[in-house]
Nucleic acid binder design. Structure first.
Lengths: 134, 134
DNA sequence: CTCCGTGCAAACGATTTGCACTATG
DNA sequence: CATAGTGCAAATCGTTTGCACGGAG
């Protein structure tokens, strides 16, 4: 099963990298449609899955909402806004987490962990202030 | 908007607490149906939402799958099995995480964080070994 | 020329909602 | 007796899949 670099795959990858955001499949679909109006949403889903399996992009499964895809495949954590659901990258020192406790937790064999900081982004904080003034 | 303690709400709450597991809405639906055969799945969803908003139970949104609900509302983390998707509670020393870095991350105002350990549970490890022997 | 990839529509699983009815406080 | 909660069915949302066709290698 080899990977073909089709036009649609190339554009999907390019647009995600270009965006520097954590886009969902349908957001990316909208962007890609500008260059390729006949592309189908299913193709976007299929390619995002394949690209993340190939390690070319990251897949984010955050907080019960839609999946988002990450242009950055290096190791990092995420912070996300409970109001507008945007996601940003974050680098946190993790030394506090590498404890024996985790390594043998409840008999599990550990494969990794996900740390997700939750908060309100600057933009939504400003909006909230404006609302108050009303 | 006051909270009424209906029969269905009471049983849902009781069954979740009793289970000592992290049940999904439909798993809980099955349990509750034994006592209340005519209850509807929508009622279970509605009550789980209300109960978690009232702080009587916890809501877990883990890794893109269905939501699960937590009988334990005290502060703790979770470990989850990538194979069978079961979730267990976990207490991890969090001092490593309370850094300035997090508190002012990217201009966000932080409301909390979720730490999710990922691994393979003891039961699935055993199953995997058996598979190998075949 | 061989298959992997595509577009389309239909199927899907989890959750939510509109409605008329019921029952709690 | 007001109005929060219920059961039911239909709707919705994000995502996946079957199929016949198209294009990359």
């Amino acid at each position: 099963m080899q990977l073909r670099m089709t036009n649609q795959r190339e554009i999907i990858l390019r647009e995600l990298k270009k965006s520097r955001q954590h886009l969902s499949a349908d957001e990316l679909y909208d962007k890609v449609k500008k260059y390729m109006p006949r592309i189908s949403l299913a193709t976007v889903y299929r390619n995002l899955e394949i690209l993340s399996e190939a390690g070319l992009i990251g897949k984010l499964e955050i907080s019960g909402r839609q999946k988002r895809f990450d242009y950055d495949v290096t190791d990092h954590d995420h912070i996300y806004c409970v109001v507008c659901h945007r996601v940003d990258n974050l680098n946190i020192e993790r030394q506090g987490l590498h404890t024996k406790e985790i390594k043998s937790a409840k008999g599990y064999s550990i494969t990794g962990y996900r740390l997700e900081i939750v908060g309100i982004c600057p933009v939504c904080q400003k909006k909230a202030k404006k609302e108050k003034k009303k």
